[in-house]
Amino acid sequence: MRLEFCGLGKQFGEQQALRDVTLTIPEFQSLAIIGPSGGGKTTLLRIIAGLEIQEKGYLCINGQRLEVDEEALLAHRRTIGTVFQAYNLFPHLTALENVVLPLVKVHGFSEREARDTAGALFARFQLAGHAHRRPAELSGGQQQRVAIVRAIAIKPRFLLFDEPTSALDPEMTAEVLDFIAELRGEGRDLIIVTHNMGFAREVSDHCLFIAAGEVQEAGQSSDLFRKPHNPLLVNFLAKVLRY
């Protein structure tokens, strides 16, 4: 997929979350967005997800400009799969029902088709035993995997992950990252905001480093991690890779 940002700006109260981000990212399959907390990477992802509206500028996805009226954004959100840090699932529904809900209510599946589709995905990703449990009965890693299944069940154009493992312990982190790597291996397009540099380096083919509301450096992941140019990025990598 391709992405193009043109003068994107977003402010929260006093804080300038994104300032005049202009950038064209050529064809990529998986894009990692890294950077310090509060630097604007989540805001950028949320704008791409259609969950936040920029105040200035516009973005194009695969050459098509994203309109920002609520109707267009709703339609946009329905074609992509977004997974957040935690609490993606609705606690009153079982894992399977969580996946079935958008299929039936948003994508026009019959109850039966939706259950079959969801059931097949659960079986394929070793979640069959958990299908009828409520989120509270699942581990954090299992919850995230179910959330990812919900995101891919609708056959999205691409997947967005907002720090999907930051609320998990290392073992569960590995479980979820393996899952995402597997999806990448299937050839799905994805964009991930992550603090996990090893994963970003391994799985993404393109990478953005965002700090202070600006894209400080962008490029092929292999180059960017090997030979960072921007002093902020050099500094950042030195810090996060120290331990």
């Binding site: 709703l74 959100r77 329905r78 977004t82 957040f84 809900l101 958008p102 209510k105 948003v106 919900r150």
Partner: peptide, 8 residues
């Protein structure tokens, strides 16, 4: 937020 994200 999840509800919005899945397009409800």
């Amino acid at each position: 937020e999840s509800a919005r994200a899945i397009g409800l």
